[in-house]
């Protein structure tokens, strides 16, 4: 089956195969990022600006703010989970409290 991914309710959460999987309001540590100059940004997730699939990863660009320095921004693509079984669509989210490394994508992958 295809993996159906989207952000809904003004970017409040990411749905994977019609199940709410990732929410706003958590703090995500970011490393090797360009949101601010903090080595590890303590990034409050306020909204999901874009979502996409770079198989098998589900990725998102995340809007929010580093609560250490106060800089606002939208991250590059962050892997928020992985489709373990493409046949069933089984999804495993990453531990959002682990360190994330945003990545500039070389190609766009829309969820359609």
């Amino acid at each position: 089956m295809t993996t159906d991914v989207h952000q809904l309710d003004d970017g409040a959460w990411i749905s994977v195969n019609d199940e709410r999987r990732i929410n706003v309001s958590d703090l995500w540590p970011l490393a090797r990022h360009d949101v601010c100059s903090c080595e590890i940004a303590d990034f409050l997730v306020e909204g999901f600006a874009e979502v996409g699939v770079e198989h098998p990863d589900v990725q998102a660009r995340v809007a929010g703010r580093c609560i250490t320095c106060g800089t606002e921004g939208v991250t590059d693509w962050i892997t928020v989970g992985r489709v373990i079984d493409p046949e069933t669509g089984e999804f495993s989210p990453v531990d959002v409290t682990s360190v994330h490394v945003p990545d500039k994508r070389h190609r766009l992958a829309h969820p359609e």
């Binding site: 309710d9 003004d10 970017g11 409040a12 959460w13 709410r20 929410n23 706003v24 309001s25 409050l44 306020e46 909204g47």
Partner: peptide, 10 residues
């Protein structure tokens, strides 16, 4: 707020 709303932080 977070009592019911998906978007709220607090």
């Amino acid at each position: 707020g977070t009592e019911f709303c998906s978007l709220s932080i607090v």
